[in-house]
Design a protein around this nucleic acid. Sequence first.
DNA 1: ACCTGAACACCGTTCAAGT
DNA 2: ACCTGAACACCGTTCAAGT
Lengths: 201, 201
Amino acid sequence: MQAILMPRAADPALPARRRAQILDAARFCFAARGFQHATVEEICAEARVSPGALYRYFDAKADIVAAIALDARAAAEAMLDQLSAGDALVDALAEMARAFFAAFEGADSALLADIWAEAARDPALAKALATRDQAARDRLAGAIERAARAGSVYPALAPADAAETLLAALEGMALRRTLHASADSVARFRGLALHLLKPKR
Amino acid sequence: MQAILMPRAADPALPARRRAQILDAARFCFAARGFQHATVEEICAEARVSPGALYRYFDAKADIVAAIALDARAAAEAMLDQLSAGDALVDALAEMARAFFAAFEGADSALLADIWAEAARDPALAKALATRDQAARDRLAGAIERAARAGSVYPALAPADAAETLLAALEGMALRRTLHASADSVARFRGLALHLLKPKR
DNA sequence: ACCTGAACACCGTTCAAGT
DNA sequence: ACCTGAACACCGTTCAAGT
């Protein structure tokens, strides 16, 4: 009888597994049919769960969106972790730009804009993004400062300002690839970094 | 009888008037309740027309959105027309940035991101935006080139590249204001223009 | 020609019922 | 505890009927 009133805890890893299962399905559906166009029903079918089950793990479709949006940006920003080696900062930045643009290419191109659109109307997502962004900015500013101290670059701006300006340009260029799918965005970003950071050679 | 088969054309200005009436109402509703949150029913109530009437003038809600998005950008980009006076190019650019940021402030902050999100999945809007954007870029590049020829700036990049980079940074900074409502975006953009254009003094 | 408004289709979300 | 799936509420869009 106690066994009924206080049932043994079922698989404690189940919630995490279900979440992953749903997120995977959502990623698939968003990539296939676009971000707002994919329906909860489709996600459920792909994840093989009922709507009721989905809503047990996420409060709303927007939450799924937010989780995936954060993941997408985190993956693209992970490049910034490799920036500690101060020697070839500009090359490392160009590589980061390449990775960032690639992350939001093709079917995912709408995702970048959608993240901003969601953030503009969802304070919780905006806050989560801001936290992540602050970390990215700090890492970039730190890399610039170290390189400057080592004498390998002569930044035209304070490290924090240079970092913010570079990230803004990166974001803007990524968005603008929607209009003119210019293959030279990476080169342009590299050129900007070059002129803002003025490396030794 | 002919009068019935071929009725005299009613007020030929009516379609334009109705469109303006609906767009005004939509602008009001979007500003009040946000962009995706405003319903067609609300817009109809505000414009004092029935849904059927609205759909006579617009094929879909997305078209209303697109029309307003284009208008908003056009207004902000109109600043670029004042750029022909080559003497204080950097100051003029800073003023343009201020106007651009102001256009997408507060309730309209989501609008900027929504424009990009819509463009990413609506080729027609993307094309319209691309055309407008090309014109803006050309005007900016022209202003830079004239200033360079006059010897008042010494741009670090080719005019076209400088223009594209500046517009990308402008866009990115405008978006990033969603995260940190930094009041110094204008100053930062001015700093970037300064370093890319290197004015005489 | 232009409009109305009820009806339709669709989709995010909930909840009573199951195991 | 976890899940199902029918039902609900809402909203973009259409269309038969009016003038």
